[in-house]
Amino acid sequence: MEIVKPLLQFLAAALLAPLLPGVINRVKAFFAGRKGRPLLQLYYDLAKLLRKTPVYSRTTTWVFRAGPLLGAAALVTALALLPFAGRPSFLSFDGDFIFLLYLLGLARFATVLAALDTGSAFEGMGASREMQFAVFAEPAFFMGLASLARVTGQTSLAGMFGALTGGTWSTAAPVLALLTASFFLVLLAENSRVPADDPDTHLELTMIHEVMVLDHSGPDLAYILYGAALKLWLFAALIGSTVLPRHSGSWAGDSALFLLMMFGLAAAVGVVESVIARLRLTKVPYMLITAFAFSALALIFQMGR
């Protein structure tokens, strides 16, 4: 009984994650007045890439081939920790969000090393920027989780989101609002969305995340794209569970609402991408420092209560 629901949740997340980029693209297309790509484009891309034969640079070693694999595996593992609509997944223990944080770190480390393995100036540049932004994003993300832990008095993801109710929003609204803002900024930066990076750009010099994976092809690229979709899902789920703390008691109802929330968040990302210009590269850390300030303020509010 208690294994079926987590399994269903996990499968739903794993299968629906590639929809989020599709939603974002549709929203962007709507704003631009275009017809846009099909909603399921990423699924088509993945299916196509998995059938293709990859090309490897002569410079590369096993590190290059292992990068996408490790990244995707780390994110799938992270998904197994992630609560779904405030309900625990397979793995849930005290401090599991720290594990989640470091799984994201592992995915990043593997991607960066794979990029450096190509010996390309552009991919090295992307790797350097990715690491730079991580240095600013991690403290912000950490502070956000810390204030969430402080608000709910829990130290596991499932515990935190389980203890979060509508009542929490009425007593600690400022804290949760600041947190949501901070998480959203981190989501944009970590998933290379617009103010930080432009996923649609095709100039190597200005790319960050995309430039790191220029040399990957075939199933490796499929792993990377899938991992990126999972990462987006992960951050969106954290925000979604914070914003939507209702527990109606009905599993199906909660889950449906949660999924709706996820697509709503994707749409929000799409709106942000459509109406905001990209930040200058040197300003991206500023955005993350702002996110840090938000979550630090949230924590101070909560601690001084």
Partner: peptide
Amino acid sequence: SYPASVMLCLGAFI
């Protein structure tokens, strides 16, 4: 700089 301003403002609040 921007980071210094943010940190000073946060520090002022603390």
